[in-house]
């Protein structure tokens, strides 16, 4: 099953490689991983999307907790949560395609954030699933470039990941 694991870790050089190294050394999957500082400058928050059997996910959680730089770990998929990912897509936009691309962007509640006479750059946020569907909905040959952040997530309501 797919799991979204969120963790807080010390903002130390090398902390990221400890997490990445753990996944490769133990053969765990990483679908995506992102990390950025939090409002507390001593800590970074990382979101890892992974998959595996219940036993593997249990081990992943335990092994992450065991890393000295990791402050706290939460499997968001254990409860109610919100998942968002940001995607930027550059598409070839000439002639009739310009109108069609704009229409699709509106339907998916995206925004065109850069325009040239031949291209649009579209910004879209949502679940990974929604972003996939957008890419399927537009003509494949028009896609020049895509970049995605990988999922970020947060618990709903009182589910809070804090020290």
């Amino acid at each position: 099953m797919r799991h979204i694991i969120s963790l807080l870790m010390e903002n130390e050089s090398g902390a990221l490689s400890r997490v990445a190294g753990l996944f490769s050394a133990r053969g765990y999957n990483i679908e995506s991983l992102n990390v950025a500082p939090t409002e507390d400058p001593t800590m970074s928050r990382m979101t890892i999307v992974t998959s595996g059997s219940d036993e593997v996910i249990e081990q992943i959680n335990k092994q992450l907790n065991k890393l000295v730089d990791v402050v706290t770990v939460m499997d968001l998929t254990d409860g109610d949560h919100i998942e968002r990912e940001l995607m930027l897509v550059k598409v070839r936009a000439i002639g009739d395609d310009r109108e069609e691309l704009k229409r699709m962007t509106d339907i998916f509640r995206g925004r065109v954030i850069d325009v040239t006479d031949k291209t649009y750059t579209i910004e879209l946020t949502g679940t990974g699933h929604k972003l996939d569907r957008f890419l399927q909905a537009i003509e494949h040959s028009l896609i020049l470039e895509t970049v995605r952040t990988g999922a970020s997530g947060i618990g709903r309501g009182d589910r809070i990941l804090k020290l």
Binding site: E55, E58, Q59, K62, Q63, N65, K66
Partner: peptide, 11 residues
């Protein structure tokens, strides 16, 4: 003492 040792190979 190590939670990761528990239920690693044998439940």
């Amino acid at each position: 003492i190590d939670p990761a040792s528990i239920s690693k190979r044998v439940k």
